[in-house]
Design a protein around this nucleic acid. Structure first.
Lengths: 161, 161
DNA sequence: GATAGCATACTCGGATATTAGTTGTCCGAGTGCCGCTGG
DNA sequence: CCAGCGGCACTCGGACAACTAATATCCGAGTATGCTATC
C-alpha cells in the first residue's frame, strides 16, 4: 500500500493555486522551481488533474494551470483519485471461486467477507478524504502561518506590476 | 494506491488455518492447490507472516504453517502490515522544506497540514482494519455458509483417519 | 519379533529471473506576445 | 503616429527511456517417516 509522489505534489499545487488571483494561470515550471521538483514530471501529474476536470490549462506565454472550480468544491479525495486512479486498493481476484465449493461465483466481491471488510475500511478512508477540501486546508495553513499565502503568491506570480 | 495480491492470499489462508485442528500444520502446497495459486509464491507470502510472528512453521513431512496465537488475537491489520510493510501510504517527502520560506524544516510531517490530513485518513483506515479479527471473519463466514468450515477442513487436511 | 540405523520424501527458506508500475526525460503542436514595417 | 503582420519565445501534451517494486520460479537445508537389516 503505497501512494505515488504525485499525490503530494498535486495537493500542494492545488493549495497554492487556490491563493493565486483568479484568471492568473501558474506554469508547471514555476511550481517546480518553487518545490525544487523535476518540472516535466510535475507537468505530467498536473495533466492528470486536467483530465479529471480539477484543473484547466492554457498554452502559450502567460499560460499554465488554474483551478477549474472553487477550491471548496475540490476535495482531497478528488485529487488522490485523479492521480492514483479510482481502482480499489484491495483487488479481490475472487480466488475462492476456484476453490472446491466455488459455485458461488456470481460476484465474489459481495459475498466474500474478507473482501467486504477490506472494502469497508477503504470506504472510511475515502470518506475521510472527501470531507477535507482544498479550501479547508488552505485556510488551516493561513491560520497557522499567517504570511504563507502572501509569500507564496509573491513567489509564484512574481511581484505584481 | 494498490495492495499486493499477497494480502488476499494471506487473509484467506489465516481464516482457513483458524479452522484446522490445533497442532495440525497446513503446507503451502495444500493451500495453493485449494485456491489454484502458484505454490512457491504463496509460500513466500506466508514466510512474511512467520517473520511477523503471526504464523509458525515446521519443516519436514507433516509440516507446514499454523497460527501462532489465537485467531481472535490476530487482526486484519496485522496481516496487512506483515505483508505490505508498515510504512505509511503517504510518503511526505517534505517538499516544502525546499520552498522559499522553508525554515520550518524540523519534522515536516507534523507541521504540514496536507500530511496531517493524509495521515489522519490512513489512521482511520488502519483502525477499521484493526477492529476486525481473523476469528470474527471466520465466524461471519460460518454464519453465512454453514458448511464452509467442514468442507474446507476436509479438503485441507484430508479425511481424518 | 523388536530395535537401531539409514535412505527417502516432504517441507520451509532464501536466492534468483521476469514482469508490471512508477519515476523521469524529451521533443513536437499550439498560442499569445513583441517588434518591425508600411501607410 | 498607428495598424497590420511575421518571427519568436513560452506553454502544455503526449511519446519515449530508466529505474524500482511486485510477481513468479527454482534449488538447497533440515526433519519426520517408513523401510531394512541385524540382534
Amino acid at each position: 500500500m503505497k501512494l505515488g509522489q504525485g499525490v503530494e505534489w498535486g495537493l500542494h499545487s492545488c493549495v497554492n493555486m487556490s491563493w493565486t488571483p483568479p484568471g492568473e494561470a501558474v506554469s508547471s515550471a514555476r511550481l517546480a522551481e518553487f518545490y525544487k521538483l523535476p518540472a516535466a514530471y510535475l507537468n505530467k501529474q498536473l495533466q492528470a488533474l486536467v483530465r479529471a476536470g480539477i484543473l484547466t490549462s492554457v498554452s502559450g506565454p502567460r499560460g499554465g494551470f488554474s483551478l477549474a472550480r472553487r477550491p471548496d468544491r475540490i476535495s482531497v479525495l478528488d485529487v488522490v483519485l485523479a492521480i492514483e486512479g479510482n481502482d480499489h486498493a484491495f483487488r479481490c481476484e475472487g480466488i475462492a471461486k476456484d476453490a472446491p465449493g466455488g459455485s458461488m461465483d456470481a460476484d465474489y466481491a459481495r459475498t466474500c467477507l474478507i473482501s467486504q471488510t477490506m472494502r469497508h475500511a477503504e470506504v472510511t478512508w475515502r470518506t475521510e478524504l472527501s470531507r477535507q477540501s482544498i479550501a479547508g486546508i488552505a485556510q488551516s495553513i493561513e491560520r497557522r502561518f499567517p504570511d504563507a499565502r502572501e509569500s507564496t503568491v509573491l513567489r509564484l506570480v512574481g511581484p505584481r506590476t
